[in-house]
Amino acid sequence: MPLATTRRAGLVDQVIEQLRDAVRQGEWRIGTRIPTEPELVATLGVGRNTVREAVRALSHSGLLEVRQGDGTYVRATSEVSGAIRRLCGTELREALQVRRMLEVEGARLAATARTEEELARLRELHDQRDAAQREARFDDFVHADAEFHLAVVRCGHNALLTELYRGLTEVVTASVAATANEKLGPAERIEHHGILNAIADRDPARAAVEAAEFLDELLAGLDS
C-alpha cells in the first residue's frame, strides 16, 4: 500500500493518520499483519522512533495489536470499535448482551423510519444471507448476516446509534461466526424473516420483539 511521504512537522500525528486511513479504507484488513517497522520507515521517510511511537499510540487505542516476536496486526477498524472490543473482551455472552441492547432499539426505530429503498436493501441482504446459509457458505453467511443487522440499525436514522453499532462491527461479526455452525445445517439455522416482515409492516413493537427473541435464543444456548 503506497503511503505518502510525510512533512517534518507533526510527524507522529501524520503517521498515525496515515496508518489509520490504511485500516479505515481496507488496505489492511482485520487480522492481517501490517508492514514491518523497517518497511514503514522506508515507505514513509521518517525515523524508526516516529513509526514506533505511532504504532504504540494506535495499539493503545485498540486499532492495532503488537504481538511480541510476531509483528503488528490490525485489531479493529476504528478506535471506537477497539474501545468496545476492550469493554466486551472476548466473552461471547457480553458481546451478545451488547448486541441485544442496540439491535432491539435499532429494529424498533427501523420499523418507523425506514424508506422503501432501505427496505429493498434489507430484502437483498436477507436473501444473500439465506442463500449463503442454505448453500453452507460459512464465510459469506457471516458477512451477509452482520451486514443485514447493520443495515437494520441504519434504517432507524439515528446517527449516534448507528455509529455505536458500527463500532461493534468486529464484535458482531465474531459473535455471528461463534454462534453459527460451520455446516449451517437446518437445525442450526436462525431465521430473520420475522424481523424483516415487521420492519416492512412498520410495526415497531413486533420488530423489537423479533430482534430480541433470536438473540435471547443464542444467549439461552450458552447455558445449555
Rank of each mutant, 00 (worst) to 15 (best):
M1P: 15
M1I: 13
L3P: 05
A4G: 05
A4I: 07
T5N: 06
T6H: 08
R8W: 08
L11W: 01
V12A: 05
V12N: 02
D13Q: 15
E17T: 05
L19Q: 07
R20S: 13
A22N: 10
A22Q: 14
R24E: 06
R24T: 05
G26C: 03
G26F: 02
E27H: 11
E27D: 12
R33L: 11
I34Q: 04
I34W: 00
E37V: 09
E37W: 03
E37Y: 09
P38D: 12
V41A: 09
T43D: 14
G45R: 08
V46R: 10
R48V: 00
N49T: 14
T50P: 06
T50K: 12
R52F: 09
E53G: 00
E53I: 00
V55F: 01
R56F: 02
A57H: 02
L58H: 09
S59W: 03
G62D: 08
G62A: 10
L63C: 02
L63A: 03
L64W: 01
V66W: 05
V66Y: 02
R67T: 08
G71Y: 11
Y73D: 04
R75N: 06
A76K: 05
S81I: 03
A83K: 05
R85H: 05
R86W: 02
L87I: 15
G89P: 04
T90A: 14
L92K: 00
R93L: 07
E94Q: 15
Q97V: 04
R100M: 04
M101Y: 10
E105L: 07
G106E: 02
A107E: 13
R108P: 01
L109W: 14
A110L: 13
A111K: 09
E118T: 01
E124T: 05
E124F: 09
D127T: 06
Q128R: 14
R129N: 08
A131Q: 14
Q133I: 02
E135T: 08
F138M: 15
D139R: 08
D145L: 04
A146S: 10
E147H: 09
E147W: 01
R154T: 13
C155P: 03
H157G: 02
N158I: 04
A159H: 09
A159Q: 12
L160D: 14
L161Y: 09
T162W: 10
E163W: 14
E163H: 15
R166G: 13
R166M: 15
R166C: 14
G167R: 02
L168K: 03
E170Y: 03
E170S: 01
V171A: 06
A174I: 01
A174R: 00
V176H: 13
A178N: 01
T179F: 03
N181E: 12
N181T: 08
E182T: 14
K183T: 11
G185N: 15
G185P: 12
E188A: 13
E188T: 10
I190V: 11
I190E: 13
E191F: 07
H192E: 05
I195W: 11
L196N: 04
N197G: 06
A198G: 07
I199L: 03
R202H: 15
R206H: 08
A207Q: 07
A207R: 04
A208L: 12
V209K: 07
E210M: 06
E210F: 04
A212K: 06
L215N: 04
D216P: 09
D216E: 14
E217H: 15
L219M: 14
D223P: 05
S224D: 08
S224I: 06
